[in-house]
Amino acid sequence: MTPAPKLLTAQELAVLNQRSDAKGWQQFFGHLALLAVSGGLWLSGWGGWAVRLPALVTYGFGLAAMFAAVHECVHRTAFASNRANDTVAWIAGLLSFYNSSFYRRYHKWHHRFTQIPGKDPELADPKPQTWPQYLLELSGLPWWLGKIRTHFKVATGQFADYPYIPAEAQSEVQRSLLWQLAVYGALIALSLGLKQPLFVTAWLLPLAVGQPILRAILLAEHSGCSEDDNPLTNTRTTLTWAPLRWLMWNMPFHAEHHFCASIPFHALPSAHEKLSSYWGHLDRGYLAVNKALISTFGQA
């Protein structure tokens, strides 16, 4: 991997790298509050479908966007405390159907080999090249099937397909996932005991509704970027609405994050002010990025 060019002074980087428990908890509890309000409106039925439908979309995307919390916490930058990072990462993974222990190792390789064919694990899932592939991607179905397949293999100790999980970490990853699956099992049992489809209405259905929005966002991060180790051109920053940046824990500043992954989420806007002029891919709006992706369909 080519070392990142020095675009920040040591002093600037030291300021940007300051982690904060207070800012981490403020972000996490704010995210949970959004889930509580939107989920309450969805499940209560108050206001009829004029209220319930937008509440469902908000709640579902809020659940899916807990992936952003997993992402920040596995870098152990969201909080000053590593225990807080690991705890929140696991809880956020429970809500978003990711496993933080697995994702930490997977994502480490993604950063180590960003956009390097044959090495970056994210490139194992090809970007859509046609309308059917694009719509299938947005549906979230490949993601669901991939998660179910991976969770099954990890739960049963099958790590041959995951070279980024070292042998010494396999038992930890397996144990973490088994606990996660046990929680899902307990919630399913509770739903059956109450004779209410709460596992479906409070989690499974909303998360499925939120996935298309998250898929469109994640497609923007590297699609159409250079497939090499140049940090100035292999990742995209997308300028978007402040509420979306907040719910995604500032992940839209993705080029800044990949350029220096030690910068906490709350400092990424400041990093953007210093670095944005260097990026090869700086776009305004996820609709525009997805439209540009669609425009390449059928091209060689």
Score class of each variant (00 low, 15 high):
298 G>E: 13
271 A>C: 05
67 F>V: 10
176 S>T: 06
148 I>V: 14
107 H>D: 09
4 A>C: 04
48 G>K: 02
91 I>Y: 08
148 I>F: 15
27 Q>S: 14
13 L>F: 08
94 L>P: 00
194 L>A: 05
230 N>D: 15
53 L>Q: 02
127 K>R: 12
173 V>Q: 13
195 K>P: 00
72 E>N: 11
8 L>C: 03
86 D>Y: 05
10 A>N: 15
16 L>C: 11
228 D>G: 15
272 H>Y: 15
146 G>E: 08
290 N>K: 02
89 A>K: 08
204 L>R: 06
120 D>S: 01
7 L>F: 02
99 N>F: 07
218 L>D: 13
117 P>F: 09
116 I>H: 11
248 M>F: 10
16 L>K: 03
38 S>Q: 06
203 W>P: 00
82 N>Y: 04
96 S>L: 01
135 L>Y: 07
214 L>Q: 14
230 N>P: 06
48 G>Y: 03
216 A>T: 12
163 P>T: 04
207 L>P: 00
20 S>E: 00
259 F>V: 00
80 A>Y: 11
27 Q>C: 01
69 A>C: 11
193 G>C: 03
178 L>W: 10
74 V>C: 09
7 L>H: 00
147 K>C: 11
246 W>Y: 09
229 D>H: 05
30 G>D: 04
276 S>R: 14
132 P>K: 06
97 F>E: 11
295 S>I: 10
278 Y>S: 07
82 N>D: 14
130 T>F: 07
168 E>W: 04
99 N>S: 15
274 K>D: 02
140 G>C: 10
246 W>R: 05
228 D>I: 09
115 Q>C: 07
191 S>P: 11
14 A>G: 12
